[in-house]
Computed example of a mutant assay.
Amino acid sequence: MTFSLNYSSLRHPEDEQQIKKLISQCFAEFLTESETYFNRIGSQNFRILHHNDQVIAGLAIYFMGQWYGENLIPMAGIAAVGVAPEHRGKGVAFQLLSHTLEELYHSGYPISVLYPATQVLYRKVGYEQGGSYCLWELPTDTIQISEKNLPITSISPINYEQFEAIYQQQARKNNGNLDRNFAIWQKTLEVQGKQESYAYLIGEKNQPEGYVIFTQEKGTNGLNLILKDWVLLTSDSVKHFWSFMAAHRSLASQVQWRSSPMDSTLLLLPEQTAKIKYQKRWMLRVVNVPLALSKRGYPQGIETELHLEITDDLIVANNGKFCLRVSQGCGEVTPGGKCNFRLNIRGLASLYTGLFTPIQLQLLGDLDATPDAIEAATIIFSGSTPWMPDFF
C-alpha cells in the first residue's frame, strides 16, 4: 500500500452509497439487491477501511449467538467481506479482518463465525473449519410413512415470532445452531419473486411439537418442496412431518431441506434414499480464549482439568497457558497450568465446536498433547455434530 487506511464504522451517507456499490460489484448483485441486504443488516453493523472519503473495503457483522453444550455463546457472524478490485492482492482484506477481530475482542465477543469464499485468507487471521451446512434431497415417493397422530394447522400470515420459541428449543440441543437475530430470521423466511411460503404448526396450538415452512418450485419432474425452516421436537412430530411430506408425492417429486450431515430423522425412512446435494463448512475463530472456554457448556457428570497452551499470531492476549476446570457441565478458566495440551488458535476452533477430535487434530499436526490430556479433551468436547441450517 502506498497510503495508510483507516478502520471505522460508516461515517456519513456517502460511505453508505459506496459500500452498497462495493457489495453489488463484489457479489454480482443488482444495486437494488445490495440496498435490500444493507437495510436488513443495518448501517451500524458495517465496517470499512477508507482513505479520506474513498471506501476501499468493507464487511458486515451479524451480532447474535451460537449454541454449544446447551449454552448460548455471544457470536459475531462476519459476512459480505469485499475489497475494491483495484486494491486486491495488497493485504487489504487481512487488514480489515484484523481490525474487526481486535474490535470484537475489546467488545467482549468470545467467538466469530463466517462462510469462506476462500479458506486461505481466513486461516491467516485464525479461523478454521467449525461445522457443516448441508442441503439434503429426497424423492417424496420413497418416504412411505403414514402416521398422522397429531393435528397440523396452517399458519398465515407468517411471522417469525410465532416460531422463535419453538426453534430455540431445538437449536439449544445442536452444537453450532444460531440464536438468530432479526436479520437472519428475515433471510430465512424471505421468498423470491412470485413464490409463496406455506407454514404449518405440528401439534396442539398451546403446546406445539414442531413446525415446517416451505415453498413449492417447478422442477424437471414436477414440483420441488423447498423447506425454508423446520423444527421437530418429539418422535410423533417427526413421524407426522414425514407423513405430511409424503402426502405431496402426487404433485411434488422432491423435498429439499437443510440439516446436519448426520440427520437422525432419516432413520425412520425405509431406505437410504436421501442424499446430500450440497455441503459446505463454515469457519469459527476463537476471539477470546478464556471467555470462550468458560462460557461453553460441557458434558454433565464429569470432573476434570485440561491444561492448554495456545498460540495466536493476531490477538496477543490469547497466547499462553490456561487451565480449564470442568465440573457439572460448567467450565472455569484460570491462567497457568502444566502445559500438556498445545495447539494454535485454529486448532482450538475445530476442537471447540467438536468438528474434529483431539486424536484427529494430533494426526494433522495441529496438536501436541499427552495421552492423558487427549483422553480428558475427548470427553470435555464431546457432543452433537456441529452444524447450522442458516447461511449468512
Rank of each mutant, 00 (worst) to 15 (best):
T2M: 06
E14R: 14
E14S: 15
E16A: 12
I23D: 02
A28Q: 10
E33I: 13
R40E: 09
I41H: 14
R47M: 12
L59D: 12
A60T: 10
I61M: 06
Y62Q: 05
G65E: 08
G65D: 11
A79F: 00
G82V: 11
A93N: 04
S98M: 04
H99I: 11
V113L: 05
T118A: 09
L121P: 03
Q129L: 12
D141W: 02
I143G: 04
I145V: 10
T153C: 03
T153S: 13
S154M: 05
N159C: 05
I166H: 03
I166D: 01
Q168I: 14
Q168L: 15
A171K: 01
R172C: 13
G176I: 01
N181T: 08
N181M: 08
N181H: 12
A183K: 08
V191P: 02
G193R: 06
K194I: 08
Y198H: 15
Y200M: 08
N206I: 11
T220G: 03
N224W: 09
L225T: 15
I226N: 13
V231Y: 02
S235C: 11
W242C: 10
M245E: 07
S250W: 01
Q256H: 14
W257D: 03
T265H: 09
T273A: 14
A274D: 08
K275G: 00
I276S: 07
K277A: 11
K280S: 11
R281L: 13
L284D: 04
V289N: 02
K295L: 15
G301N: 11
E303K: 09
E305I: 01
E305Y: 02
K321C: 09
E332G: 00
F341C: 15
L348W: 01
L351F: 03
D366T: 05
L367R: 02
E375I: 02
A377G: 07
T378H: 08
S382A: 14
